[in-house]
């Protein structure tokens, strides 16, 4: 096996929203800049760029992560999903509709990250999570507009609807 040395520009091969991507990235570029500047996918937002605000939350290899705390250079072989991808696949249309319905976004800066955190608890939690559980799960995502109440409403509404659909199906 070739023993790679340090590189300033790193070749990576990965999938983004199900599509194969080959790229050469500067060693210090984080995933959000890679998506926004190199691939033109502007759904993931860069806010604080040190892990605090959650605006950059997206999915890598099946788990939610901070896009600003992961370097694109580390992404060889990875599978990334952004808000664009999960919107196109229509798997979270109900959640997105409930965000609009409940006024769970105003400026929208936090929304893509918030949706990923919400989607995560909706898929992981059996049954309907409590409002406390929902608050805990979105505690790493700042929203400076809504005051969170409407966001918790939208997630809870989605969880209830999904749960009754599932019960009806059983």
């Amino acid at each position: 096996m070739s023993q790679a040395a340090f590189e300033q520009l790193v070749d990576i091969s990965l999938t983004v929203n199900g599509e194969r991507v080959e790229a050469r990235v500067p060693a210090g570029r984080h995933v959000v800049d890679f998506l926004r500047l190199d691939l033109g996918l502007t759904g993931a937002h860069a806010g604080c760029e040190h892990g605090v605000c959650g605006a950059c939350t997206l999915q890598i290899d099946g788990e939610i992560v901070r896009g600003c705390l992961i370097l694109a250079a580390q992404m060889d072989g990875a599978e990334i999903w952004t808000i664009e991808g999960v919107t196109d696949s229509k798997e979270i249309t109900d959640l997105q509709d409930n965000f609009v319905e409940r006024n769970a976004l105003q400026c929208g800066f936090c929304t893509p990250g918030m949706i990923f955190a919400a989607r995560d608890i909706l898929t992981r939690h059996q049954g309907v999570p409590s409002r406390e559980d929902i608050r805990e799960h979105i505690s790493g995502n700042y929203c400076r507009c809504t005051g969170y109440e409407a966001i918790v409403d939208a997630i809870e509404t989605t969880a209830r609807a999904r749960n009754s659909e599932q019960e009806a199906a059983e």
Partner: peptide, 24 residues
Amino acid sequence: MKASVAGYARAQSLGHAFDLLQSA
């Protein structure tokens, strides 16, 4: 702000990681 990174290498084994650390 943006990270300033002079270079990146993915270690293939623990031995390789030590080699990289030593070479730097």
